[in-house]
Design a protein around this nucleic acid. Sequence first.
DNA 1: ACAAAAATGAGAGCACTGCTCTTGACGCTC
DNA 2: GAGCGTCAAGAGCAGTGCTCTCATTTTTGT
Lengths: 230, 230
Amino acid sequence: MSAPRTARERARAELTQAIKDTARRQLADVGSRALSLRAVARELGMVSSAVYRYFASLDELFTALIMDAYNAVGEQAELADTEAREAGATPAERWLAVSRAVRAWAIAHRHEYELLYGTPIPGYAAPQDTIAAASRTPFTLVRICNDAIAEGATFPADRPTVTPDLFDENMTGLVNDPTFAYPGRIVLAWSGLIGVITFELFGQFNGVITDFAAYFDYTARATAAELGLT
Amino acid sequence: MSAPRTARERARAELTQAIKDTARRQLADVGSRALSLRAVARELGMVSSAVYRYFASLDELFTALIMDAYNAVGEQAELADTEAREAGATPAERWLAVSRAVRAWAIAHRHEYELLYGTPIPGYAAPQDTIAAASRTPFTLVRICNDAIAEGATFPADRPTVTPDLFDENMTGLVNDPTFAYPGRIVLAWSGLIGVITFELFGQFNGVITDFAAYFDYTARATAAELGLT
DNA sequence: ACAAAAATGAGAGCACTGCTCTTGACGCTC
DNA sequence: GAGCGTCAAGAGCAGTGCTCTCATTTTTGT
């Protein structure tokens, strides 16, 4: 990611980006299963073996696309939350705004969404950078809850909670809630949010729901209510 | 599905099953992306073109595997619920039992689960039969709620609800609840259940949760509580 | 019982894929 | 300007899904 110093480095950086861009374009057309390194090379007017100078394998190209996609959806989520917060929205309204932003991105970038939350690519091993990029969206949800707690929100009583020992160490201090009622429920809310979007995109709601957008809003509101957000 | 009358029909039925079985075996080994019709034919000692007499395309073979998988997990769900009910379990306990059964099946048949709830196979068009098979598991959850309603359970007050017009017509009469509070929430619970299992299987919980089984039980209990099941 | 019809398996072949290796040309550094 | 590292290109390998043709076998109709 360092700045290109020589002409060759600049050309390399540009071509690397061009490969990713055309790959992303073809991904939108044919889906991840049919994405072909040779077709990408063809569209760029180069021979297939030349692409291997930039990505050692198709899996590596996929990994790069996944990284970019995690950052893209994370950026949308952060943006939606920041805008809502600056407009004076309540935590519940911010939750809805972020949920909508994630869904909108998923619909607009269906096949990139599949890369993130669909069947994992077998040869793809998530490096440390990927984890950070993947955390941007859920951390946005955590931020909303932390702000709500700071404003005096409390977790609804009489609901199942979870002990902190089920969670990884680096998760325990994330939410400002010593009872750990929030963190356990936030993770469930997060997986539920992706679950609803996935069901809609992957056709599990066909023949069940007719108005996807309206139903999604309901799910987001219901989830926020279950977190005690108002 | 009619009974084989001639020897050729019997041989055809057996070979069709043998192809599916070895395909399922190879699927467990290499995953759906690497499943090869030629490799299946090789293992069966036949030439690849012969397999096309039984499945017109790889997509058609996938469709058959998907049908079988939907029925397999649905059967496990129904079995778990029936056993729990006959043992005198409460609706909440039955919900937990069914949830656990689905998760257990998913872990034991990872790649078949991917076929059902992961990225859809592009060339696969769900016929009417597939919808019926896919409905077995969620209908089991509906049955639990109906039994609970029959026993006098009521939907928790002060929670967001949804109007019936968002749902397909053939869904409206499914749950014995004129207010339609249950159906909207059941669908969310269903997608949430699959969302949690998918997150665990697809690695989204790596670095977040350590004790998957314990956390899953919590999510199932929390979901049951949100439906007002006791 | 015998011929026509249908179904089946084998093989060759096409177009495509990911990936490797070698070759020759170019740009950068000293 | 010489030497080195990087680069695109091409050939080639093993594998894929799928189609076509050609015998062989089984079922069916008369």
